[in-house]
Every structure is written in structure tokens, then in C-alpha cells.
Design a protein around this nucleic acid. Structure first.
Lengths: 336, 336
DNA sequence: CTGTTAGCGCCTTCAA
DNA sequence: TTGAAGGCGCTAACAG
């Protein structure tokens, strides 16, 4: 195959020839290794830059056993939360000269394992972003993936560093917010029952219920997208709740939209809260009260853990970032 | 450094030993190359799977000169349009066994060149997603990046395949929609003046103006995010336009929000349209009329071009995907 | 059809 | 300090 148009790929050999030294000397200069005579080093640098030479990352990868790349497996790139974390991670990694290989599992649990294994093989480490697979599978898979960092999932009894949003506390605070406003009859439009992040939220509800016997929280069937929220409106109204927590902002927005269509006023007739604080939450009508998950930090902190791992430093304790409640227009006092 | 916990990395040698054959035979079986005796092949396969062996992608990369990975440089992962294209591309690439390395330039023009060059070196090819750099720089850089595919940018006179949304036609159709409703005094809240995609839109406006002398389109200063739209409200109202085209959906949503706060009714008092049809556009109040850019297809088609390139097939003609107008609640007849 | 041999481009011992 | 030689794990020409 003919070379496209640019110069043919240069090797360390070309640089050595140009500088009149041996390959090893070039290698040493390029890596800042050991002591090389000042004048020789200068000649090498001149040759390299005039040839516009850079060492082949693949060859280095082979000999060093390091690719300067980490894999990130994400269930769905379309989800703003994952995206934010991915972005935070990718930017932080870039600052340390690391690259990011992405693998989108399209929420396909069976695909997750294969993707992770494949991606891991071409990288130095892996980040699992909210893996969907059952805990047993995850625990079984993890050892073969190390070094690994997990975001937004907390498999019990595994020593991989975890960085996660504290959904439980987020939900507690949202419930407290409604409680303080005077609500006693609330509803939670749940996510998928198999999902870990749904369980964490339910934990929050249970805790709150234990300390507030005067509160009713109906758990309603739901989902994770706009449509789920939109369709949940009948169940929500039937529950007679005066305040509704949606699984996430998308669900809340769908619900908001359905309520709007029926002429039900928010927050006068019913209060709504979302979860995540996606960028769009501020711009709904009314603006959405929600628990703000620090997605970028999630990614940054995960990278920090990863960086420790990559440098054989003990990673710190697991981190649970607490969402902060953003009170906006969609929540108010109960009617009457 | 001690091995973490899993088995030490196996090589083709281990498999050969286990199967009692030579390295080459293993290699041949693993790659389905040439003819290998049925029984031997079976033994190799058995050995490989019992050892859970997979060839090292890095070693293969070195010897084959192919990494099965393409780089994607994106200005900002947070932008739903880029994200959608990235997602479409990544999914399509995965179907062909290709991996995706991402590089987020954070909208930093000076960083773009370096990121692209670096990322390209560890991949077989590169996709430039709406590159921000000036056309001259782009044309200068491109030859060193080949094979390359460009999304949402159309540098004149370069033979790299381009897949882009046809912003010009999208804007034309939106203007026609307003025109048909009876609007004659319109405004366009522009994006960044240096941006290519803004120019394409302005081309659309110019074309429309040329064929519709009875229409006024005021071009107003704007931006690309919510805030820009929100802040543009005074200029919009001052223009006395009865229908407003926003640079994109985010700008439209910001504007919608500001109008809402002032009690100006949409579409009764003023009509609004966005551009892109991000997932949230359907759920604003009122739902946003917009031109739907087929982002996933953008990515998929880009991959198709890339696939051609990677297989030494001539890539097809440049593709310009036409956005389709989605008429929703934010546009109506002019007042009075 | 199979095994042996020579690299892919680079880093890193080893002698000098 | 510098150069020569070996090898990272694999594939693809060679011979047998």
C-alpha cells in the first residue's frame, strides 16, 4: 500500500542516523534517561525535531507494557450523568498524559462483560461507569480487570476503589425538603427495580420513613426516561401525593410535561423534584427542584484514584459524594 | 511488581506448549489463516480456550501496523449534538470490531491540533468532529492525519470525506415554516461569528432573503448556550420580530425561559424555533419547534466512510444530511 | 501443511 | 557515557 501523502513513518533509526549516534542514545535522550553528553543530546534533539519525530506509542506500549490509555465502559453515552463523569475523567486523565478509550454497552448487560474485557486488554486499566451487571457477575469479573475503578456502583466486599454519588443521602435531603415544606403524603416514581441506583434511593426512603412515622411515601412504578415520567402521571395522581420525587430529572421533566398538559399547576397543586441536576433542569417550567450530583467531580475523583493505582500508590478510601439539594420553582407548600 | 491477583499474562508460547505445536500454528489458527490440519487446529483451540488466551492487541498492533482503533476529536463532550454523533459512530465502529479513543479539546482551538496529532498516532485513523480551528490550519493539518473523516465542517478543496448536517437547508426550511405561518419580521439569534456552523446558517438566511424580498431577518448577537439565549431577550424584543430563530435549541430554551419570566406568551405573542432537536426540545413549555439534526446518522455515516477508507475502498461523495423541521408548540401565526 | 527465522519499533540490560 | 545485542508478543515470509 502506498503512503497516503505525508512522509513515511520515521523510526528512531532515522533520527540516530541524522544525529550520527546510536539508537540507544536517541532513546535515552527522548526519555530523559541517564546522563547523555550535552552536545550529543542537543544533536539528537535537533535531529528529532527537524524530522518531526515522535516515538511510536505502540512500540513503546509493547516494550514497556504500558499504553498510557485507560478504558471507560459506560452503559449509555446518551445519559447526561454518565457523560458528565466521562468528561470529568477524560479531562483529568489528559492532564496526566493519559488517553481514554470508550466502550458504550448500550445498556446491554450481556455485552458489558465482553466489552470490558476487550477494552481492558488494550489499556493499562479500566473504569467501570455504573456497571449494570448483577453484583455476582461484577465481583467475578473484577479481578481480571484490575487495576479498576468503579463509579456509581458499590459492590460489597471488593477492594477496587469506588467513587459514587450518595444517592441515599440525596434522597433523604429531598424528602426532608418536602417535609419541611409541610408535605406528609409523598410519592416516589421509581427507576428499574433491578438497578443498583434505584436500590440506593429506596434505602434513602426507608431510612426517612423509619424516623418520620407521620410520612407516607408511595413507591410507584416508573422508569428512567422522559416517557416513563410522562406515562407515570396517572399513577402519580391516583396516589394523592402532594409531593413527588422522580427517579431522575428526565422522569421529572416527563411528568412535568404531562401535568402541564392536564392543567395541573406545579407547585401550587403538586410539588415535583428530580434528581441529578442535569443542565436542563434549571430551564424547565417551572425550574426543577432537584438534588445536584457533582458529575464532573465524580469523574475527576475517579481519575485521582486511578492515578494512585497506576503509580502503585494505595488508593484512598471509597468516596461518596453527597448531592446537594437545589431548591427551585417546582417545589412549594402543599395545597390548602 | 507483583501480579495483582489474576493469572500472569499468557503468551502465544504458552498456548503452543499446551497444544504441543509451534507458535506459527497457533497464530494461524487464531487468525483463521491458511490451512491447518483439523485435529491440530482443534487442539490449539482447546488449549487457547482452556487457558483463556487472547492475542495481545498491542503486539499485533505493532506487527500489523493496525490498532483496530480510531480517534475521535470532539470540541466538547457536553454538547448533545457532538455526543449523539460520537455515540452513533462508536456503536457503528464497535459492530466492525473497532474501538474509539476520544479526545475532548474543551473548545480550545490551540489544543485541537496537538490532541489530534497525539491521538492519531495511537490509532489507525481519525475523525474530526466539528473542528474549531481556522480553515487554513485545518487544511495544513489534515494531510498528516489521514485517513481522516470530518463531521460537521466542510473545508473547501480537501479530499477527506465529509459528513455534515446541512445547516443551510435546515435554516431555509425553518424560515419557510415561519413564512407560511405569515411571519414577515423575523430575527436570528446568532452563534459565535467565527464558527463555521454559524456561517452555514447565515448562508441559509441570505438565500432566503434573496428569494423573499418581503421578509426582514434581523441578525442579533447571541451565543451557543442557555445563558446566551436568556440574555438575548432584550435584543429580541427590541427587534420587534414576530418570530425568532435561535442558533440552537439551548439558546432557544434560554430565550423561552426569559420570555416566560416576563410573561410573554409563546407562540401567541412571539414564535420561537430552535435548531438540533436535542432530546429535551420536546419537553419544553411549550414544546420547541426546531430543525431535527440526525445526529446518530451523522456518526453512523461517518463510520461508513471511515470503513471504506480503512479497507482501501474509495470513500463515497460527501454527504449533507438534511435536518427535518419538527413543528411543535413554540411556533404559530403572528399576533393580530 | 508445519516449524524455523526474521523482524515490527522501541527500551534496557550488558560490555566497552 | 556510549554502542551492541536481546527481547516485549506477535505475524509472515521462508524453508522443510
Amino acid at each position: 500500500v502506498a503512503q497516503p501523502s505525508g512522509q513515511r513513518p520515521l523510526t528512531i533509526f532515522d533520527v540516530a542516523a541524522r544525529a550520527g549516534v546510536s539508537l540507544s542514545t536517541v532513546s535515552r535522550v527522548m526519555n530523559g534517561n541517564l546522563k547523555v553528553d550535552g552536545e550529543l543530546a542537543e544533536r539528537v534533539r535537533a535531529a528529532a525535531s527537524s524530522l518531526n519525530y515522535t516515538a511510536s506509542p505502540i512500540a513503546r506500549g509493547l516494550v514497556l507494557g504500558k499504553t498510557q490509555t485507560v478504558a471507560v465502559v459506560v452503559p449509555d453515552l446518551g445519559n447526561p450523568t454518565f457523560l458528565g463523569a466521562l468528561r470529568g475523567l477524560s479531562l483529568a486523565a489528559a492532564k496526566n498524559g493519559y488517553h481514554v478509550l470508550i466502550a458504550d454497552s448500550s445498556e446491554d448487560v450481556s455485552e458489558e462483560r465482553i466489552l470490558a474485557t476487550q477494552a481492558r486488554r488494550r489499556c493499562d486499566a479500566i473504569v467501570l461507569l455504573a456497571p449494570r451487571m448483577p453484583e455476582a457477575s461484577l465481583l467475578e469479573l473484577l479481578p481480571s480487570l484490575e487495576p479498576a475503578v468503579i463509579i456509581n456502583r458499590d459492590p460489597t466486599g471488593f477492594p477496587a476503589p469506588v467513587v459514587a454519588a450518595d444517592y441515599r443521602s440525596g434522597l433523604l435531603e429531598l424528602l426532608a425538603h418536602f417535609y419541611d415544606l409541610g408535605h406528609r403524603k409523598m410519592a416516589f416514581v421509581a427507576g428499574r427495580s433491578e438497578s443498583a441506583s434505584n436500590s440506593y434511593r429506596l434505602d434513602g426512603i426507608a431510612s426517612f420513613g423509619a424516623t418520620h412515622p407521620d410520612v407516607e411515601v408511595h413507591v410507584l412504578e416508573g422508569g428512567v426516561g422522559f416517557e416513563s415520567g410522562y406515562e407515570s402521571v396517572d399513577r402519580v395522581l391516583a396516589s394523592n401525593a402532594t409531593a413527588v420525587l422522580a427517579f431522575n430529572d428526565l422522569v421529572a421533566m416527563g411528568l412535568l410535561s404531562a401535568l402541564n398538559e392536564r392543567g395541573i399547576r406545579v407547585p401550587q397543586d403538586i410539588s415535583i423534584a428530580g434528581f441529578d441536576d442535569i443542565p436542563f433542569a434549571r430551564f424547565t417550567t417551572p425550574p426543577l427542584t432537584t438534588a445536584s450530583v457533582p458529575v464532573a467531580e465524580l469523574g475527576e475523583h475517579a481519575w485521582r484514584r486511578m492515578w494512585d493505582l497506576l503509580n502503585d500508590r494505595p488508593p484512598g478510601e471509597n468516596e461518596y459524594l453527597r448531592p446537594t439539594v437545589q431548591v427551585r420553582g417546582s417545589s412549594g407548600k402543599p395545597k390548602g
